[in-house]
């Protein structure tokens, strides 16, 4: 029922409010299959909310999000769209994985168990299958020797790599990265970015990342979107956004960020 020419993701006039404050204002936004999109912007611009809506951690106030042409938080009933059932949510969610700023690893489980828990309980994999899959992924992120380590025994960069492996173990089509290097010590940022870069090269994944790493966004992303005040103020290729931004706000933001970073 999904048509191949549908975009991977489509936001159709999506709004999100917290009380009086509008965080996303009738956003229209599309992401193509396997596209790597970097989302930048000042804090409070709605960029993290965008990811959280996709992951169904927050509910949409107005508008509809489509994943491969299928509504995410709603489902069709006859002509109309009604709020999605739990089964529907679970089915759409299965296509999406997310990595958080603060890792959110399960502290009472080893790195391996963190990566096998959901494949076993949600996908119904056997212990052996789940372990094999998790081991392979942990090796891929360079943690093959840390399988039995608990999160508390790992550095921030290692934790974040476990979190990436944990999300990948569910075989998502779309990966969301929410400021995944913001909570890391500067010297640990590189190892996480390296894993993400490798992912982009070796796997068919649609990737959305909210990031403050402008250098990484520039080299890695197919497209950069600048968010400001709940709207997408400007978007384009990295060359366009970083080389010749059209909007004054974008220019201000970039010069402020690059100044503090240098």
């Amino acid at each position: 029922m999904t048509q191949h020419d549908d975009p991977m993701l489509r936001f159709d006039k999506v709004s999100k409010r917290y009380g009086q404050h509008t965080v996303l204002d009738r956003l229209d936004f599309e992401v193509a299959r396997n596209e790597k999109v970097a989302i930048i912007g000042p804090s409070g611009s709605g960029k993290t909310t965008l990811l959280r809506l996709l992951m169904t951690l927050e509910s949409v106030d107005a508008g509809v999000i489509y994943v491969e042409g299928e509504p995410l938080t709603h489902m069709p009933q006859g002509e109309r769209l009604i709020p999605a059932s739990r089964q529907h949510l679970s089915r759409v969610r299965a296509k999406i994985g997310m990595v958080f700023q603060h890792f959110n690893l399960f502290p009472h489980m080893s790195a391996l168990d963190n990566c096998t828990e959901a494949p076993r309980t949600v996908l119904g994999l056997s212990k052996a299958e789940a372990s094999a899959r998790a081991t392979e992924l942990l090796q891929m992120v360079g943690l093959g020797d840390k399988l039995e380590h608990y999160p508390g025994q790992l550095s921030g960069g290692q934790k974040q790599r476990v979190a990436i492996a944990r999300a990948l173990a569910m075989r998502p089509r779309i990966m969301l990265f929410d400021e995944v290097t913001s909570a890391l010590d500067p010297e640990l940022v590189g190892e996480v970015l390296k894993v993400i870069r490798q992912l982009g090269e070796e796997h068919d994944l649609t990737m959305l990342m909210v990031t403050h790493e402008m250098g990484f966004a520039r080299e890695f992303a197919d497209r950069v979107c600048f968010f400001d005040g709940g709207k997408m103020a400007e978007q384009g290729t990295p060359q366009e956004i970083f080389g010749a931004p059209r909007q004054e706000r974008t220019r201000q933001f970039l010069s402020a960020v690059l100044e503090t970073r240098s």
Binding site: M55, G97, M98, F100, F103, L105, F106, A118, V122, M170
Partner: peptide, 16 residues
């Protein structure tokens, strides 16, 4: 709260 969110992102049900 992040523990709940991580579990949701991994598609675990509420009781799970």
């Amino acid at each position: 709260k992040g523990q709940w969110e991580a579990a949701t992102a991994l598609n675990l049900g509420r009781m799970q």
